[in-house]
Deep mutational scan, measured.
Amino acid sequence: MTEYKLVVVGAGGVGKSALTIQLIQNHFVDEYDPTIEDSYRKQVVIDGETCLLDILDTAGQEEYSAMRDQYMRTGEGFLCVFAINNTKSFEDIHHYREQIKRVKDSEDVPMVLVGNKCDLPSRTVDTKQAQDLARSYGIPFIETSAKTRQGVDDAFYTLVREIRKHKEKMSKDGKKKKKKSKTKCVIM
Rank of each mutant, 00 (worst) to 15 (best):
A130E: 07
F141V: 04
M188T: 15
K128L: 09
L133E: 05
K177H: 06
V152H: 10
K165Q: 05
G174Y: 00
V152W: 15
K180V: 10
V125A: 02
S136G: 09
L159Q: 00
D153G: 09
V186Y: 09
V125S: 01
E162W: 02
E162N: 07
D132P: 01
Q129M: 13
Q129P: 05
G174V: 11
R161F: 00
K175C: 09
D173T: 08
K179W: 03
Q129W: 15
T127Y: 12
S136A: 10
S136Y: 06
R161S: 10
I139L: 05
R164I: 14
C185V: 02
F141T: 02
G138C: 01
D154W: 03
K184A: 12
H166D: 07
K180F: 10
V186F: 06
F156C: 03
V152T: 09
S145I: 10
Q129I: 11
D132I: 05
K172F: 10
L159F: 00
I142A: 01
K167G: 04
L159P: 00
T183L: 03
Y137S: 05
D126N: 09
I163G: 00
S145V: 05
Y157V: 14
K182L: 06
K128A: 11
K128F: 09
V160G: 02
I139C: 08
Q131F: 05
D126F: 06
T127P: 07
R135I: 08
T144H: 01
S145L: 03
A155C: 10
A134I: 05
E162R: 03
E162I: 03
R135G: 09
F156V: 13
M188R: 15
C185I: 02
E162Y: 01
D132Y: 04
D153Q: 13
R135D: 14
Q129H: 08
F141D: 00
D173Q: 06
I142S: 01
K169H: 11
K175D: 15
G138W: 00
A155Y: 01
Q129C: 13
S145D: 15
A134Q: 02
Y157N: 14
E168K: 04
D154Q: 12
V125N: 01
R164A: 11
D154M: 08
K167I: 02
D126E: 08
R149G: 14
Q131T: 07
L159Y: 00
K175V: 05
D126I: 04
K177Y: 04
K176G: 12
E143D: 14
A130L: 15
Q131G: 07
R164S: 08
K180R: 10
K128N: 12
H166M: 14
I139H: 04
P140W: 00
F156M: 09
T158I: 03
G151N: 13
K169W: 06
F156S: 00
Y157I: 14
D132E: 13
A134T: 02
L159C: 07
C185D: 15
F141A: 01
G151P: 07
K178D: 14
I142W: 02
